[in-house]
């Protein structure tokens, strides 16, 4: 370097010392910014989720208080009584049939509801997204407008439709299809119907968002390449709107598992679901530790179900 001028010394080249250095710097800067900006939400999550959860976990290992609350005595009864119960007469351990049937009802009704909202929701989302641009907002508005009212009000609306003197039964009797009103209230059917109605928008909206993004010209490409309508749906539409379907299914399935209002109103006292069982422990049952352990069980079931679901769906994507 015989010809180094004073200027070139004053302005050292700013090139990165080694390959990848700039990229690393860039991404580390990125991460730092993200931490800083998300600090408020991290605090909120900590105080309102992690905090209460820790309290619940603690309670689940204590003994029920005499009237409510807990006694500070360690016990694992709350956990064992989720699945087992002690016979009142001979004191042997037995399966807690009542609990098991509630778990099963929650799980199966949630899955059926998710499937039904998907079956109704996918065509609905497709229909809305194929309307002319000005009309789509109107349809979306109509779709979501019931959600603006209180959940209880909507559930009672379903009740009005299906109860013995309700709209449906009146019509059926009047037309003469049945002689006596059909018993629909206080059945699993009623709960499934109610949840399907209540959670349908949660399925339609994410699918609509995915369908909206889908380039409709891809469909022409499908038909151009000899695909039938079914093949176009199966090979191109479905894989491309799958993120929306997954999001919608999670949004419907999770609140269904923990549903409280709908089974309470439409299922009555006999057809309990998970949410009602938990509520019972904190209320009339006066067994807070069991309520706490049940809440954790519900959380674990949701997590396992989600992990399983996402595993299965992403597996398919790799194959396709």
């Amino acid at each position: 370097m015989a010809y180094v001028t004073p200027e070139s010394e004053a302005l050292p080249l700013d090139a990165p010392a080694e390959p990848g250095a700039l990229e690393a710097e860039h991404s580390s800067r990125d991460v730092r910014q993200r931490w800083f900006l998300s600090l408020p939400s991290i605090l909120i999550i900590f105080f309102f989720a992690a905090g209460p959860l820790s309290v619940m976990l603690l309670y689940s290992f204590l003994t029920p208080g005499n009237y409510s609350g807990v006694k500070w005595e360690f016990s694992t009864d709350a956990w064992s009584s989720i699945l087992m119960q002690r016979d009142i007469f001979d004191d042997t351990l037995q399966w807690a049939d009542a609990h098991l049937s509630i778990f099963w009802r929650s799980l199966s009704l949630s899955m059926i509801t998710t499937a039904l909202t998907l079956i109704f929701g996918l065509p609905t989302a497709w229909f809305i997204s194929t309307r002319p641009p000005g009309r789509r907002e109107l349809w979306l508005f109509l779709m979501t407008v019931p959600s603006w009212t209180n959940l209880l009000v909507r559930t009672i609306a379903v009740q009005e439709m299906i109860r013995a003197e309700g709209v449906i039964n009146n019509v059926l009797v009047f037309v003469g299809i049945v002689d006596e009103p059909v018993q629909m209230m206080f059945t699993n059917f009623a709960i499934g119907l109610g949840m399907t109605y209540v959670y349908l928008p949660l399925m339609v909206l994410p699918i609509y968002a995915a369908v909206e993004k889908l380039d409709k010209r891809l469909l022409e490409a499908c038909y151009d390449l000899y695909a039938s309508r079914w093949q176009a749906f199966y090979r191109v539409i479905l894989p491309l709107v799958k993120p929306g379907i997954i999001a919608g299914s999670i949004l419907v399935f999770v609140p269904c598992l923990g549903a409280y209002v709908v089974p309470r109103v439409l299922g009555g006292g006999k057809n309990l679901m998970f949410g009602n069982l938990i509520e019972l422990q904190f209320g009339a049952g006066r067994n807070w530790p069991l309520g706490a352990s049940l809440s954790f069980t519900l959380m674990v079931i949701v997590m396992v179900a989600l992990i399983f679901y996402i595993r299965v769906t992403s597996q398919e994507r790799k194959d396709g």
Partner: peptide
Amino acid sequence: FQNYALFPHM
């Protein structure tokens, strides 16, 4: 097609 319309998931 003018925009190619390739299937993005394949």
